[in-house]
Design a protein around this nucleic acid. Structure first.
Lengths: 191, 191
DNA sequence: ACCTGAACACCGTTCAAGT
DNA sequence: ACCTGAACACCGTTCAAGT
């Protein structure tokens, strides 16, 4: 039997689309441009993703899935909270290092009012997934804290890191991200 | 002599455009839509603002000017750092309270790669203006800190607050903003 | 000085038609 | 099952023309 050499167009479209969104946002996604990149016509892209909202939601869903898998690995690798937070902040750093890109869901949050509801739902799930993970990490450091307090602290940590990425990106200066994360830690916002 | 009753179209366009950007971002700005709102044709909008970049830059420039004026008032009104930070965080809160809007320059940062250079320049100036102000406020609380440290601390504070706004907006829940700001203060990130 | 209509190359989406 | 061309109503921009 032959190996499956045939390019999976659906996958090719998603890969190209994800890069565009992380660099330019959801609004900048163009079916015609995408079609050109993968070598089909724009009407054919609609065969795989009936609307732009379907494509956006699929992107966000996969982004959350992949993120959750990686975060689970981090949890399994070490119990040290500082090490875990090092890995976590590195994720957002590497997006900036990679051509000044942003967290897919962070950039989509900014475009919120333009997003179809399917996409919004997935963006919400990404934030919830991250906050849940952070609360787990923080609970090791603050074993006596209430669930409510941990949730708030985790939300604040997530927001602070997203903000550091947003501002550093705006200034096109990854050093700003590094210094901001250091300042967060110096004040004790997270381990 | 008659009062100047004639509507200043340039001003009308800017007012409508600013509301659109804070709600939907720079990409969502449409000259045709804007023209409809103020009662002229889209070609006439181009008379006042030759390109969309000119309009975006004019919006950001004025936003920074108005912000700087308000922040100067806060500085003049009281020397209390906590009171000053209360007023500062309130600014970002009121954007959310006003129809889930965002900081004009925060939302533009997310769209950075789509922005013409004139607009980017103005977005940078807004961030620098805010960080400068915050450094001044923080210097009262940390009189022995170096300029370098104050600048980093101010940048971290700015990024954290922008992030709180971004995430709360993404979740369409102003309570998240309030709780996040409270958590920042609980850890001592700012007064 | 300010506004307009018409044209240009773009966009997402639909649909009947091809293989 | 997957792709296409043609059409639709949108977009920013340009420009010659009006007052």
């Amino acid at each position: 039997m032959m190996a499956k050499t045939k390019t999976d167009m659906r996958e090719a479209v998603m890969t190209a689309a994800r890069a565009t969104v992380q660099s330019h946002g959801y609004n900048a996604l163009s079916f015609r441009e995408l079609a050109k990149e993968v070598g089909i016509k724009s009407a054919s892209v609609h065969y795989h993703f009936p609307t732009k909202g379907d494509l956006g939601a699929a992107l966000a869903r996969r982004y959350t899935e992949e993120g959750a898998a990686y975060l689970a690995e981090i949890l399994a690798s070490s119990e040290d909270a500082t090490w875990r937070m090092d890995r976590y902040t590195e994720i957002f750093r590497s997006a900036l290092a990679n051509d000044n890109r942003m967290c897919l869901c962070g950039i989509m949050s900014a475009e919120l009012d333009d997003l179809p509801t399917e996409v919004r739902t997935e963006v919400d799930k990404f934030a919830a997934m991250n906050v849940g993970w952070l609360a787990k990490v923080l609970s090791r450091v603050r074993p006596s804290a209430s669930d409510q307090d941990l949730q708030e602290h985790a939300m604040a940590t997530f927001a602070a890191i997203e903000g550091a990425q947003l501002v550093a990106r705006g200034c096109r200066d990854i050093g700003i991200y590094d210094r901001t994360i250091r300042a967060y830690r110096a004040t004790g916002l997270f381990p």
